[in-house]
Design a protein around this nucleic acid. Structure first.
Lengths: 334, 334
DNA sequence: CTGTTAGCGCGTTCAC
DNA sequence: GTGAACGCGCTAACAG
């Protein structure tokens, strides 16, 4: 058994109240007592019991993180951002994986409730009706990162995927590309799918370029989707000068297949990615991509969350700016 | 305030003891009472308070993870492995970052002690004397992943870096390479540095190849180290046919610089990496590399830890096997 | 300046 | 089958 204030009190010949006071530096005790108590605490290797404190204060100082189960290139940065903000305010962070598709989101929420976390940040998991209901019933502040809930019912922080996709596509057009593919996107994903498709379409439309449905190759944002997309374009003799890939992994897949087929990027085909993951600047050619500020989103999200916990303020949804990072995977035709 | 068993007891007209019994399915109550209590619990949206339970049971069901602050390609998989094992046994996972060099390891340990975690897994942080002392004083089971402590004083699970480096180098020799560089390694890192240098040296020695100190370019395992290494070899006219890079990132750096200088990998220069990170199979050429089973290490480490918590058994250090994954970045000269 | 006491939410005897 | 009462480690009045 670990030592308690009771042990210290006994040794120091004072009451537990006094021990509590000096340990929390509340004042109202003599110098002598303070030194003695502190000395004994150190001798006894005392560590306060946060669980007991949580119980009496009805506050756990724990932030819960719920994320999908993936080994993606960038998630670690979101977590870094969250943990930094949490630590700064004296919070610890508890982590749960909700499965690849976030299918265990609700069970994670329940566990979080049992741990009495003071707030929750969840990312990359779309929250549907049932999840929203549970969240509301739990009455725990929550913020979503890089995703949303149905009907805007939960505050979120994310980039505007529609605008980002629009910008990526428009960038290609501005550089002289006309026949532009879209690769790797999921048509049923309400967050990162549909808005990007719409952004792509509208950018073409606005530039007076006809939309050809066959230029869109659906997928799961991963490497394989990119490879398959490229195979598809080649097999069907779809001549493109550029492809907008919905993730850097997908871009890598496209480029990989190009290398195999002796298609040179960007000379023969331009590629633009999405995410600005670390690798995008490490490969040859370096990949032009849309950058989402992951660390900042994690940090900001957690800051807002803690503010809302402390001041009981509502969290405001926020659209954070993306940037288009120009590198070497897009050829300028003009 | 969240509902408690007291609230349920009142509503159900039973004592809190009875409520506790049915909630924990301990038996010793009538069917009627059980149904009623369960119904009311659901109505009141009851969630048990794990903090309170921790207090009375003197067990928190929390596993602590301490890791360096890095956005690396593979760390997420270690965490995945840990969390999966933890969840399987009903444990939650609390996460702390100890800084880039693990400099906050001790403060993390103290926080973990305050949370009364039942066990700790720490990875990629070398634990020196002071850390060991603290660990011992805390009396919390702990396991190290992919690292060690001074004097073997804390159980660990890792691959044999010496053997892996030996194998990587020997593989190059077996394929006909004679003048082989070593890039990106830290000469003062007792875990991933010195053993790999020794492995590299001994492999050469054993193959009757003279060791040239100038072929070793030190660094920090990252992309830049690789780029700089290649620049160094070129500027100093050091003609190599192969380079053993101590990480895939470093390999990427080497390859990146090669591309810039019109050196073709593997035709002009062979490269072998370390880590088998996801990207190594996504780039062109795909990178031959040493694979460490990160997910498995996390999973196994956490399993052993939990076993040690439950049965109070000692954790046994383990060397897990690495594999050399052959891909396309090494030219076979023979 | 210091001690006593009452909970925080829950599990657990020990009676009945 | 069920309830009263105690204690886990700690904070927060309140009393002196």
């Amino acid at each position: 058994m670990a030592t308690t204030i009771k042990d210290i009190a006994k040794q120091a010949n004072v009451s537990i109240a006094t021990v509590s006071r000096v340990i929390n530096q509340l004042g109202g005790y003599s110098q002598e007592v303070e030194e003695n108590v502190l000395k004994i605490a150190k001798e006894l290797n005392y560590h306060k019991n946060e669980n007991a404190i949580s119980l009496v204060k009805n506050v756990s100082n724990i932030i819960g993180i719920i994320m999908p189960t993936v080994d993606s290139f960038y998630y670690s940065n979101i977590v870094n951002g969250i943990e930094d903000a949490a630590k700064k305010h004296g919070y610890s962070v508890i982590l749960m994986h909700a499965g690849v598709e976030g299918e265990n989101f609700k069970s994670c929420l329940n566990l979080m409730a049992e741990r009495r976390v003071d707030g929750i940040v969840a990312f990359s998991i779309f929250v549907e009706q049932e999840g929203v209901a549970l969240v509301k019933s739990l009455n725990i502040p929550i913020v979503l990162l890089s995703t949303e809930a149905v009907e805007d019912s939960i505050p979120y922080i994310k980039v505007d995927d529609y605008s980002a996709a629009f910008e990526a596509t428009d960038y290609l057009v501005r550089n002289g590309h006309q026949r532009i593919g879209l690769a790797g996107v999921s048509p049923i994903d309400p967050i990162a799918g549909i808005p990007r498709i719409n952004g792509y379409r509208d950018a073409l439309k606005q530039n007076g370029i006809p939309i050809e449905e066959e230029l869109i190759y659906f997928g799961d944002y991963n490497f394989t989707s990119g490879k398959k997309a490229m195979e598809y374009y080649i097999q069907n003799d779809i001549a493109l000068t550029a492809i907008f890939c919905v993730s850097d992994e997908t871009a890598l897949g496209v480029i990989s297949e190009c290398n195999k087929q002796n298609i040179i990027v960007p000379e023969d085909l331009s590629v633009i990615g999405y995410d600005n993951s670390k690798i995008s600047s490490m490969v040859t050619p370096t990949i032009t991509t849309i950058s989402q500020p992951f660390y900042e989103m994690g940090n900001l999200g957690c800051e807002s969350l803690i503010l809302s916990i402390l001041k009981k303020k509502e969290i405001l949804s926020e659209i954070v700016p993306f940037t288009l990072v120009e590198r070497n995977s897009v050829k300028k035709l003009l």
